[in-house]
Amino acid sequence: MLSIREISKTFNKGTVNEKKALSHLSLELPDGDFATIVGSNGAGKSTMFNAIAGSFITDEGRIILDGKDITFEKEHIRSRCIGRLFQDPLMGTAPHMTIEENLAVAYLRASSAESSSPMHRFLQGFCRITKSEREMFREQLSHLGMGLEDRMTSPVGLLSGGQRQALTLLMATIVTPKLLLLDEHTAALDPATAQKVLDLTQKIVEQHHITCLMVTHNMHQALEMGNRTLMMSGGRIVLDVSGEKRAHMSVDDLLEEFSVNAGKELDNDRILLSQ
C-alpha cells in the first residue's frame, strides 16, 4: 500500500526558472490497485514518479510504502522494493552484459531483503550465478514468449526495443516489488510490440498482485488497463475515477471531466491524436 501525503516540490526556487512541479499532492493506493495516470506535459507525472522512487527529496509531505516512511530514504534503498520502467527501452538494461547477467543483477534485490544481516549480504556478494538461478531465469524468460530463454548468453544490446522492454519488465518484477512504476513504458514501441508488452504487463501484474502506477498518453489504455484512472494537472491529481463510473466512461467523458476539473482544455497533441 502506497500512501502519499501532501507532497510538494519546487525546482529552481527563487530564480526566474522557478517551477512548482508538485503541489500538495496526496494519493492513497491500496494493495493490488493498478492505476493509470494521464495528464498533459508538465503536469507532474514523471516528477511524482521521481519523488516516489527517490531521485530527489520532496520539500514537504511524506511518502509511506507498506507502512514504512520512505520520505528520506536513498534511491537505491527504495529500489529494493520499487520496480521502475522508463519510456526509453535502452535505459533499463545494461547493453554489454548478457541477458542472464542482467537478470542476475535485478535478482540482487532478493538477497538485499532486510531480513539478511550485513555480513551475510557481504558474503553473498561473492557468489556467482548458481545453476538453480539460471534455471529460474530460463523459466521466467520463457513466459515472455519471445524466445529469449534460448539466448541467455547474448548481450542485451543485440535485442530489439520491444524485447529489451519486456526483459526490463521481467527484471523489475523478478523479485515481486511492493510497487511498480511504469513511465510510458510502451510509448517508444511500434503498436504491435507495444500491445504485446502491455499484455505482458497486465499478465505479470495480475499474477503477482502487484500494486502499480502507469503513466500513459493513450486515453483508451488509460481506461482499459488497471482498475483506476488518475488525471494530473499543475502538480496535483485533479481526477480520480474507479469502479462503476470508470467502467461506463468513454474517452470523450474523460476529456470533458478533465476540462471541468482542471479548468482548461487538455492541450497535448499526442493525447488528441490517440483518441
Binding site: 522512487a53 537505491h76 529500489s79 533499463g92 538494461t93 545494461a94 543483477v105 540482487l108 534485490r109 523489475a172
Partner: peptide
Amino acid sequence: DSSPMVRASS
C-alpha cells in the same frame, strides 16, 4: 554499463 538501470535495481 547503464547508470539508470543500476539506480533502478538496488
